[in-house]
């Protein structure tokens, strides 16, 4: 390729790409309605579906974004990171639904994973959270030696530098998460008064060691910085039940809305942005989403996200 050819090509592609991004003729309407736009304009896909059979729903939704074989290669070491943060039963919507976690583990095995590790660093006492969230019993019931739901082992936190971090330069991060070939983030969608909503990016806090409370001072930037080194291969947002008030742990069924919805995406920011709509809020109200998008970690513009619903 000579210089002239290079310049021509560069000019052509940048022009067409910028036209594609800022297509002056496409409608600029915003809102929660999925927009009809040519497929090549989309930067991210989010699969979502509604249904009461959660295992089936998880399979359908993940199939929409390519299926588990896209994310888990044979022999891969898979980490599934649910929210087991609080000592609450599943119906309180403070933790990820055990059936969702279990189905993902099964799917990872079917895709050929050599091992599946499930863990979270809870805010309440770990054993109570693991048991009462129903996640540990559900995984134990699988009775598969490749799948383990272990408590956090304090020895496994590795001080990791974050080269692209703007405020976060280094932190203790759980080794299993860092070494995973496939990191599946499975947050539960809930209200959180500091972050606005606790979704996929916020769920990343479960891999942190040390005094995590300090993160709250610059929560949005810290979470985005973390996502630069620990980007989920797949984000599955559990909105089967949504905690609308008194989050992130709730404790009262009146604050819980049954929504029977699950979202999946390989773009962590797009997944969060679409889940935000379920709360009747706009993605640009949620600081964590906005900051992560501004760092180039994913797409939050709804007209750039291809939303595919389960038929």
């Amino acid at each position: 390729m000579d210089r002239r050819r290079f310049l021509q090509d560069a000019a052509f592609w940048s022009l067409s790409w910028s036209l594609a991004l800022h297509w002056p003729f496409s409608s600029t309407m915003s809102g929660s309605v999925a927009q009809a736009a040519p497929g090549n304009l989309f930067l991210a896909q989010v699969g979502m579906g509604k249904g009461q059979d959660y295992p089936q729903l998880v399979r359908q939704v993940v199939a929409l974004v390519g299926g588990m074989t896209c994310f888990v290669k044979p022999g891969a070491r898979v980490v599934i990171k649910p929210n087991i943060g609080f000592d609450r039963p599943p119906e309180m919507a403070a933790t990820t639904h055990p059936l969702v976690v279990r189905t993902l583990a099964e799917m990872a095995l079917e895709a050929g994973a050599s091992q599946v590790r499930i863990f979270d660093r809870p805010c309440n006492e770990a054993r109570r959270c693991y048991h009462n969230s129903g996640i540990l019993p559900a995984i134990k019931a699988m009775d598969n030696s490749k799948v383990r739901c272990d408590y956090i082992d304090r020895r496994k936190f590795v001080t990791t530098t974050i080269p692209q971090g703007r405020v976060l330069k280094s932190w203790d991060i759980y080794r299993d998460a860092l070494e995973a070939d496939c990191y599946i983030n499975v947050p539960v969608a809930k209200q959180h008064s500091r972050a606005g909503l606790s979704l996929g990016l916020k769920n990343g806090m479960g891999v942190l060691g040390g005094n995590r409370g300090q993160w709250h001072r610059q929560l949005e930037q810290n979470l985005a910085d973390l996502a630069t080194i620990l980007r989920p291969t797949l984000t599955v947002i559990d909105a089967t039940r949504m905690l609308l008030r008194n989050g992130p742990q709730g404790g009262n069924l009146r604050d819980v809305q049954i929504n029977d919805t699950i979202l999946a995406s390989s773009d962590p920011v797009a997944a969060d942005a679409c889940a935000t709509l379920l709360f009747g809020r706009s993605p640009d109200e949620i600081g964590t989403t906005v900051t992560a998008a501004s760092m180039g970690l994913g797409t939050m513009q709804l007209n750039r996200i291809k939303r595919i619903a389960v038929p």
Binding site: H192, S193, R194, H216, R217, N246, P248, Q249, D255
Partner: peptide
């Protein structure tokens, strides 16, 4: 922090386990 330094925090509110939140803001 929010009182003394004007810095956001409210970890206490997040973790307050009473369903109606004994800590509010």
């Amino acid at each position: 922090l929010p009182y003394a330094k004007g810095v956001p925090c409210i970890v206490c509110e997040e973790l307050c386990p009473t369903p109606q939140k004994a800590i509010r803001f």
